[in-house]
């Protein structure tokens, strides 16, 4: 204990089992087969990825499933450098907001294939509109990490 006044350490540990439901299950099953599934809204025509159960704008059911492109353009990104408790991985690691071709929203994932020791070069490579492509993990567990990351396409 590092504090100079009386404290109690209260570490909360709780177990969870979150239900994926039909839509997430099917989406992650797709990833296992190296497919990225989206759903299209019959009302507004927008394509959402990851697949959604219902349209976030129209509130209507989405059952028009499609296998969307694994390439897209980068809209924004960040390189995480600072550590915090319970972090998903050891920094540095990068995250990107990616518009997959043919979709109407951004997909979030890790960015890879970039040399972070040369930030100037990295920034150049990842400027707005940069093209990226999904790289797949060898081992798959039907979860979001089945995609290893998105990597810049050589231009």
């Amino acid at each position: 204990m590092t504090k100079e006044y009386g404290t109690i350490v209260n570490t909360v540990v709780l177990p969870y089992r979150w239900a994926l439901g039909q839509t997430w299950t099917r989406f992650f099953d797709g990833l296992k087969e190296e497919k990225i599934y989206g759903t299209r809204c019959g009302t507004c025509g927008k394509v959402f990825v990851p697949a959604k159960t219902f349209c976030p704008d129209c509130y209507s059911d989405l059952d028009d499933w499609m296998d969307v492109s694994q390439e897209g353009t980068l809209k924004s990104w960040t390189l995480v450098r600072k550590s915090h408790f319970g972090q998903v991985r050891q920094p540095p690691y990068a995250l990107g907001l990616i518009r997959l071709d043919g979709t109407d929203c951004e997909f979030i994932h890790f960015l890879g294939g970039v040399d972070w020791s040369d930030m100037q070069n990295a920034r150049e490579k990842l400027k707005a509109g940069a093209r990226v492509k999904a790289a797949w993990s060898k081992e798959k567990h039907a979860d979001i990490h089945d995609i290893s990351c998105f990597e810049p396409l050589k231009s």
Binding site: W18, A19, G21, T53, F54
Partner: peptide, 12 residues
Amino acid sequence: RRNDVSYPDLVR
């Protein structure tokens, strides 16, 4: 027990 739906879908 509603693990047929994700939480937001249950709410909807």
